[in-house]
Design a protein around this nucleic acid. Structure first.
Lengths: 245, 245
DNA sequence: CGTGCCAGGTGCCAT
DNA sequence: ATGGCACTTGGCACG
């Protein structure tokens, strides 16, 4: 496609809040939270209705460059190529895309009011524990979930038979040192607030790294093996079918 | 575009390791690390050379759905629409995209061997501190950078005039409670390894949250105001130019 | 709006 | 492969 034609088309598409997709040969400079340069190559350019700009290389799951929603997108014709300037005053960043060739391009007004419905988050897991307290122990009685403290919120907060407080930190994946840090911070804070030295810390996760387990136990805390709900539901259901072939 | 034509074209493009971009009207089901459903709407579909699949809604910076590189992508014609099945055996996940309409589509072999050159990372910051130790204090002498311990690696490790060890944790953005947790973990570990109780902890960052500062000081640690290198370099340079107009 | 933290986090590098 | 962690992390929820 002619490069001047692209410039005019893209400009009006951006103004009309259309989405633009294109295969381009380009070179990229970014300046903002970091400074970056990417030499000439073929990439996928995506400009969204809210002026989000995303650039993908032919491989890999992450964009190589992007600009947040609400950016100012302008096009400048320079000789036989187009310079696309993207500026975001919110985070004070620039993206300059020097476009040498446009292989394919399309722009269109897209309609989509749908929100994704997602299950299997850590919140579901803490709900699950609250409804099934024996997952933590036979002597665990939940009081609240997502309890707010000034050092973060406690996933599940409760007590045991003797009335000693119990703090539970949930991880939907393997618990790491950071998870132990968090638990420790909450336990310390609860001790301060409640004025007691007897607070139980429990780390609930499907697994835990050896170092995290060591550190956990050195603090006198406990690990509870808990599976996050809905994990790999479909895989287990369909695998059977696949093996039947 | 005819939906059957799309199916055949996409199938051969995937086989040829071409990249595909399209505007489609679709409905999406995901199952893997979580379970998700997204009703009918207009979206951008991107299939990369390595069988990465990415789907974007018309707004927002993140993809609404994606599948990692190396997925198996197949197309199935069902009545007047196409069902795209994506399966990744690595992370045991499924993505089903039911495509009702294809507004625009393009596929192409893209050539790009470039790697991005990026400056301003935390690693650059720890390099900067090692080369300019007075940023931490007049009495700081770096020994090593990225020092490995079993509880993580220490950004900059050094000592003071009296030979007391100093542990520096860097953050390129505002330091939070988590950063203090990390620093504390490293200081504790160094005390154990070196068999001393006198270890200085320093948190180096451009800013720090009030809670983090409180916790930092309660541990007897210190904050060092350090700007990450190259931050907003371009903005400062060009802002002047902008204001000249 | 800042603070804290989860995320289908992802990617990088270390052991 | 697993572990520890940075990331132009992004996004949400709460004070």
């Amino acid at each position: 496609m002619d490069i001047g034609e692209f410039s005019a088309m893209a400009e009006s598409a951006v103004a009309a809040r259309e989405v633009i997709i294109a295969f381009v040969h380009c070179q990229i400079t970014y300046s903002g939270r970091a400074e970056a340069f990417l030499g000439r190559g073929d990439r996928v350019l995506l400009i969204k209705a809210d002026s989000t700009v995303i650039i993908h290389q032919p491989e890999g799951s992450n964009p190589i460059n992007y600009m947040r929603p609400g950016s100012a997108v302008t096009f400048e014709k320079v000789d036989q190529h187009v310079m696309m300037h993207v500026m975001n005053s919110g985070d004070k960043s620039f993206l300059d895309v020097e476009i040498f060739r446009v292989y394919d391009v399309a722009s269109r007004k897209l309609e989509d009011g749908q929100k994704q419905d997602l299950a299997g988050s850590e919140r579901d897991m803490s709900d699950h524990i609250r409804d099934n307290p024996t997952l933590i122990g036979n002597d665990f009685h939940p009081i609240s979930r997502e309890e707010q403290t000034d050092v973060g919120f406690i996933d599940v907060f409760g007590h045991d038979k003797q009335g000693h407080f119990v703090v539970v930190e949930c991880k939907r994946i393997t618990a790491s040192l950071m998870a132990v840090d968090q638990l420790r911070r909450y336990v310390e804070r609860v001790k301060q607030i409640k004025g007691t030295q007897v607070v139980t810390g429990v780390l609930a996760a499907p697994s835990i790294t050896p170092n995290a387990r060591d550190m956990l136990e050195s603090y006198g805390f406990r690990y509870a093996h808990v599976q996050p709900p809905m994990r790999l539901e479909r895989w287990h259901r369909d695998q059977k079918k696949i093996f039947e072939y």
